[in-house]
């Protein structure tokens, strides 16, 4: 459905996207996962025909992003990272405006947006600029859907959004996917990767890996330990100064630790830390999360 082949784009001397190739299948919920500067927005703008690549080829449903840009805009819905609806129009006026631009009516495609729009309909006469963050997001999504697009491209819809609203947003995306819409979404939150069918892990304009979240986790080859003690700050320092430690990073209430050449056993860490007088010690063998996978890839690429 979306085909990206060897795309390059630089701003002056700064490469934003370098040699990215990806395929997104019809009906897929595909995630671009990575921090600021990974190239997610640039790639999306190229797909949206808002930016022209320096090199490479990209097609959406067989349409070329450069030659067929007008047709592409008819079949894609886009929600940019920054709120870009009209602040001085009401909720309802914004929605009508976008419907009119695409030569359709709100009534014609209401079925697609109903679940989302009913949540903000009580405020339909409020100016868009006066909405809360969560409501703006719902309105932007409604406007992106009003022309019944085949593909939805969402640029960091959940950035800066609290944990509860993020969850609700992903539930909305799942429902849209069930309606047959292909979705390309970007996020800096690693935990959201598990909600996608497949993801591309990105950093500094490159794709580090592409796969299903399950496969990415399965392919992680390191031995990983979760370690906890009553004094977490001292634990970090002690673990990092241990000669058998390769990496040690805080992960919520635990540290995630790998050993040099994966040779250190759980008991070795435990004995070392007991000698350092740690109480409440736990050393567990654990499977990795997507975030562990991403961090391992980052370290390999340094």
């Amino acid at each position: 459905m979306i085909s990206i082949q060897n795309i390059y784009k630089s701003y002056g001397n700064v490469p934003a996207v370098s040699d990215i190739s990806l395929e997104v299948k019809k009906g897929e919920l595909f995630g671009l996962i990575g921090p600021d500067g990974a190239g997610k927005t640039t790639l999306m703008r190229i797909l949206m025909t808002l930016l022209i690549q320096d090199k490479g080829l990209a097609t959406l449903n067989g349409l070329d992003v450069v030659k067929d840009y007008k047709k592409i805009r008819q079949i894609v819905g886009y929600m940019p990272g920054r709120f870009s609806l009209y602040s001085d129009l009401t909720v309802e006026e914004n929605l009508n405006f976008f419907a009119t631009v695409f030569q359709t009516t709100v009534a014609e495609n209401y079925g697609l947006i109903r679940d989302i729009y009913v949540q903000i309909e009580p405020f339909k006469n409020r100016l868009a600029g006066k909405l809360s963050g969560g409501m703006k997001q719902k309105l932007a999504l409604s406007c992106a859907l009003i022309h019944k697009p085949e593909i939805l491209i969402l640029d960091e819809p959940t950035t800066g959004v609290d944990a509860v609203s993020r969850k609700e947003f992903w539930e909305m995306l799942k429902k849209l996917q069930q309606k047959g819409i292909t979705i390309l979404v970007s996020t800096p939150y690693m935990d959201e990767a598990t909600l996608c069918n497949r993801v591309a892990l990105m950093q500094k304009g490159k794709v580090l890996d592409v796969d299903t979240p399950q496969k990415l986790v399965e392919n992680y080859s390191r031995k990983l330990y979760a370690i906890k003690s009553d004094d977490m700050h001292r634990l970090i320092q002690d673990i990092r100064s241990y000669e058998k430690t390769d990496s040690a990073f805080a992960f919520g209430q635990y540290l995630h630790v790998t050993g040099k050449d994966d040779e250190a056993e759980a008991t070795e860490f435990e004995n070392y830390l007991l000698k350092k007088d740690h109480s409440g010690l736990e050393v567990l063998d654990i499977p990795p999360s997507i975030e562990d996978v991403f961090m391992e890839l980052l370290q390999d690429n340094e």
Binding site: D36, T159, P188, M190, A250
Partner: peptide
């Protein structure tokens, strides 16, 4: 906000 997981830590 916005940084990679290693930088964040």
């Amino acid at each position: 906000g916005g940084v990679d997981p290693i930088t964040r830590r």
